[in-house]
Amino acid sequence: MTEALDKMKVEFIGREESVQAVAAACQDTGEVPERYVRPKMDADPLIADAEGYALPTIDMSRLLNPESSEEESAKLGAACEHWGFFQLVNHGVDGELLGQTKADVAAFFGLSPEEKSAVAMPPGGMQGFGHHFVFSEEQKLDWADLLFLVTRPVEERSLGFWPTNPSTFRDTLDKYTLELANVTEQLFRFMAKDLGVDHEALLGTFRGLPQCVRVNYYPPCRQADRVLGLSPHTDGVGMTLLLHVNDVQGLQIRKDGEWYPVVALPGALIVNIGDVLEILTNGKYKSIEHRAVVNPDTERITIAAFHSAHLSCTIGPLPELGNARYRAMDGVEFTKGYFAAKLEGRRYLESLKL
């Protein structure tokens, strides 16, 4: 994946200063640097206590149980069609592994700036500790640091960017991402069942289940209403699985023109449909705009695992799902267009509609 992006000449501008360091300075001065200050986030209202609002919850154990699979598969399809997001419980990922993953990630972000710089993202690079989607010196920046790694296929890993401190980090991440790949493949199979398509036709687009991980660190900010942890966007992949490392909330999804907060259930994986899956399903499943807000008092840490289309495949609506509503293209063209759109809501996905 990284080689393909290099060939596409995606232009990023690297920054050396971490947001964690900026946040520490702000605690002393009380002032947020202008590059991080966003316009008031009131263009779309935030629904805090909407009656009847609840992100759908899908139970993997019920999907796998022949006696409840049909009913739970229908719930899964409805969640993908009407929300594009759901919480996955009883997913089968070992609890001890989840705990170790959270501990290792928190320990990494607790290191000194010098120690984290050992895996710093090079200028124009994609992997390592640093920042993405920085295209110019004038744009507004997100209030977040990240560690981005290609995790699958294994042969595409650049282990020089995988932290060795804490000492268990590499082994833990290897095991955790393998578990998530298995969960993702199972979900794709049940989605194919709900859609009434051959599961191999759906899985073929994700041959080998290419996977990347983005670990997000959102420092606290006393003026949290003036910054954004992550700009509104959709994910240019097939499916994303998000794990909250700590209990600090901040994810919001946009539904019917309004922003809804997501309160993660303990131990759950937050799953969302990406642009590729919306295209494959000819618009039946929805890739939903989402953002991350910042807590004024406490850091927030999450791990997002992205499962992407194979770059050599063709991305287009499955023929069984009616007249195509999106144009088809190869994986490289799609990925290049997604990055060129600069993480601006659904703009790129909407441009692909026929």
Score class of each variant (00 low, 15 high):
Q139W: 08
L111M: 03
L111Y: 03
L147T: 04
S158Q: 15
W83L: 10
Q127V: 10
L111C: 04
A120P: 04
S112M: 07
S158I: 15
E155K: 14
P113C: 10
M121P: 00
P122V: 03
P122A: 03
M126K: 13
R152D: 11
T101N: 08
P166W: 01
F129K: 07
K193C: 06
R189V: 13
D171Y: 14
M126E: 07
Y176C: 00
T151L: 10
G160D: 12
F188C: 06
S136L: 04
T168E: 07
T172L: 11
V154R: 14
G124T: 08
G124I: 01
K116R: 07
Q100T: 06
F109D: 01
Q127S: 06
V183N: 02
E185F: 00
G160M: 01
S158C: 14
T164M: 05
V183Q: 06
T164H: 07
F135E: 07
G125M: 05
V89F: 13
G128R: 00
E72M: 10
G92Q: 12
L159V: 07
E137S: 09
N90F: 06
F109H: 08
H131M: 08
L187M: 10
M121T: 08
G130W: 02
P166N: 00
G95D: 13
C80I: 07
V105C: 02
P153N: 03
P163R: 02
T101F: 07
F129Q: 01
E72C: 05
L76M: 09
H82A: 12
D171A: 15
T168D: 11
E115D: 14
A106E: 13
T177W: 08
E138N: 11
W162T: 03
T172Y: 01
R189E: 14
Y176T: 05
L98F: 10
G99L: 07
L76K: 01
E138Q: 12
A181M: 15
A79R: 06
P163K: 02
L180I: 04
G77A: 04
F169S: 00
A78T: 13
H131I: 12
V154L: 09
N165R: 14
G77E: 15
L180T: 12
A120C: 06
S158P: 00
V93Y: 03
V105T: 03
G84F: 08
D94K: 10
A120N: 07
H132V: 09
G99Q: 09
F86D: 02
L187V: 08
A120Y: 09
P166D: 05
E81D: 12
C80G: 06
V150Y: 06
G77M: 04
G160A: 03
G130A: 05
G124C: 03
G95E: 15
F148V: 10
F188S: 05
A181Q: 15
V89L: 03
Y176H: 07
F129V: 02
A74Q: 15
T168L: 11
V150Q: 02
A78V: 14
D174Y: 06
T168C: 09
S167R: 13
E185G: 11
L76C: 05
L178T: 15
Q186T: 15
Q100Y: 04
W162G: 04
S117I: 01
G160T: 09
E96Q: 14
K102I: 11
C80P: 11
Q100K: 14
G125T: 00
H82G: 11
E114N: 02
